Amino acid sequence: MSRSRTLVPEAKQGLSKFKFEVARELGVPLGDYNGDLTSKQCGSVGGEMVKRMVEEFEGHMTTNH
């Protein structure tokens, strides 16, 4: 059972698109099957996604205050 869930189900498609965009930029070959990827490759994609989301959030915080 997966404990991971999307808080806003409508965002699932956008997050998936974002993941593939980041992977492409990092040169990580994501596809339908990713069992041959290393933990480092997968982690780099997830880490970069979080980094960009935090930067986006911080940008909104500084412009709204």
Rank of each mutant, 00 (worst) to 15 (best):
E56S: 12
M1G: 15
F18W: 11
V50P: 03
N34K: 01
M53S: 04
P29C: 06
L7Q: 11
E55G: 04
G31L: 00
S4G: 11
E48H: 00
Y33H: 13
P29G: 08
G27V: 01
V8R: 09
F20S: 09
Q41Y: 03
N34C: 00
Y33T: 15
K40V: 13
T6V: 12
G59R: 07
S2E: 13
H60P: 01
L15K: 08
D32Q: 11
L15V: 07
M53G: 04
G43D: 10
Q13N: 11
T63G: 09
T38R: 01
K40A: 15
P9E: 09
T38F: 00
V50S: 09
M49G: 14
T62M: 11
L37A: 04
E25G: 10
E25H: 09
V22L: 02
E58G: 08
S39T: 02
V8E: 11
L37R: 04
E58Q: 13
F18N: 10
L37W: 03
Y33C: 14
V50M: 06
A23M: 11
M53T: 04
S16K: 12
E56D: 14
V45F: 03
R3C: 05
R52K: 13
R5L: 00
S16I: 12
K19E: 15
G46H: 08
E58V: 14
L30D: 01
G27Q: 04
E21C: 03
T63V: 13
M61P: 05
E55L: 00
G14N: 12
G47Q: 10
K12L: 06
Y33K: 14
A11Y: 09
R24W: 08
F18E: 13
G31I: 00
K40I: 11
K40E: 15
S16N: 11
G59N: 09
S44P: 02
G35M: 10
Q13C: 08
F20G: 08
N34W: 00
T6K: 06
T63K: 12
L30C: 02
M49Q: 14
L26P: 07
V28A: 02
K51V: 00
L37C: 04
T6G: 07
P9G: 06
E10F: 05
E56I: 07
V50T: 06
T6L: 03
R3E: 14
T62W: 06
T62K: 10
E48G: 01
E48I: 00
G43E: 08
C42L: 00
V54M: 07
F18D: 14
G27D: 04
V28C: 03
L7N: 10
K40N: 12
P29F: 07
F18A: 13
S39C: 01
